[in-house]
C-alpha cells in the first residue's frame, strides 16, 4: 500500500468537459467547458458557491456520472470513453469515495463495511479480513471493528468511511463535503487524515468542500463559479 515518488499514479487530466441537466422543462448547464490538470499525490480542494458544479465535476471524475462533452483521463485511462460496467470495474480498482453523510451500510459492522469493496478484488476471505483490519488501523478504529454505524459517533463513522475508501488501495480518493456533518475537532482530524493519505501513501485526494479551513490542508485549491474555473491557488 505504498508507492515511491517515481511511479506515482493518480494524475488527472480534464479537457473541455461540459455537462447539463434537464430540470423539469428547462435545461441547466452545470459545467460549461472545464480544463484542469491535477498532479498525482496531491490534496486538491474544490471550492465554490452552491450550484457552481463542483460536485458534478467530482462525480464525473469518479465515473458516477457521464460528461456530455470533453475528456477526462486518469493516468492512461480515458474514463469518458468507458461503458457503465467498465466504469464500475475501473472504480473498484482506482477510486475510493468519501461522502458528506458517510453512507455506511447500517446493517453491517465497521469491519464488514470496509470489507465490502474488497469483495470485488481477487482476494481470499482471510486476505480481505486482514486488509480491512489494516485500513481500520490506519484510521485508528481497529478497536471499533465490530460496531455497527449506529453505535459510532459521526467522526468515527467518517473515519470508517475513509477506511472503506482506502481498503482496496485505490489511486484516487474522492471526497464530497467530507466535513460537512462534523464539528470542528472531528473535521480537522478527518482533513489531517486525508492529507496523510497523500503524503504517506501517495494517493491523489480530491475533495469538494465549503470548509475554508480545508484549503489549509490542501496542496492546491481550485475555485469554480457558474460551471467554469474561477481560479487555482497553490498552497
Amino acid at each position: 500500500m505504498s508507492s515511491s515518488s517515481q511511479d506515482r499514479r493518480g494524475r488527472i487530466s480534464i479537457a473541455g468537459v461540459r455537462k447539463s441537466y434537464t430540470r423539469g422543462t428547462e435545461e441547466v448547464t452545470v459545467l460549461s467547458g472545464v480544463d484542469l490538470e491535477i498532479e498525482a499525490g496531491r490534496v486538491v480542494a474544490l471550492m465554490g458557491p452552491s450550484g457552481s458544479g463542483k460536485s458534478t465535476l467530482l462525480n464525473l471524475i469518479g465515473g458516477l456520472d457521464v460528461a456530455d462533452e470533453g475528456r477526462i483521463t486518469v493516468d492512461d485511462t480515458v474514463i469518458t470513453a468507458l461503458r457503465a460496467d467498465e466504469l464500475a470495474a475501473w472504480r473498484s480498482r482506482h477510486v475510493g469515495f468519501v461522502f458528506q453523510s458517510f453512507n455506511l451500510i447500517p446493517v453491517l459492522t465497521a469491519q464488514e463495511n470496509v470489507e465490502l469493496p474488497l469483495l470485488l478484488q481477487p482476494l481470499s476471505k482471510a486476505q480481505r479480513k486482514e486488509q480491512a483490519r489494516y485500513a481500520l488501523e490506519i484510521v485508528g478504529l481497529a478497536d471499533r471493528a465490530g460496531h455497527r454505524p449506529g453505535q459510532l459517533s459521526g467522526g468515527q463513522e467518517q473515519r470508517v468511511a475513509i477506511a472503506r475508501a482506502i481498503a482496496s488501495d485505490p489511486t484516487l480518493i474522492l471526497a464530497d463535503e467530507p466535513t460537512g456533518d462534523l464539528d470542528r475537532t472531528n473535521a480537522d482530524a478527518v482533513l489531517q487524515m486525508l492529507r496523510r493519505l497523500a503524503d504517506e501513501l501517495g494517493k491523489t485526494v480530491l475533495m469538494v468542500t465549503h470548509d475554508n479551513a480545508a484549503s489549509a490542508f490542501a496542496h492546491q485549491t481550485v475555485h469554480l463559479d457558474k460551471g467554469a474555473l474561477a481560479g487555482v491557488a497553490h498552497a
Binding site: L64, D85, A88, S92, N103, I105, L116, P117, R164
Partner: peptide, 14 residues
Amino acid sequence: TKELGVLQALGFRR
C-alpha cells in the same frame, strides 16, 4: 436507494 448508490460508487456493477 442510497445503499444501491453506495454499492455502485464502490465499484459494484449496476
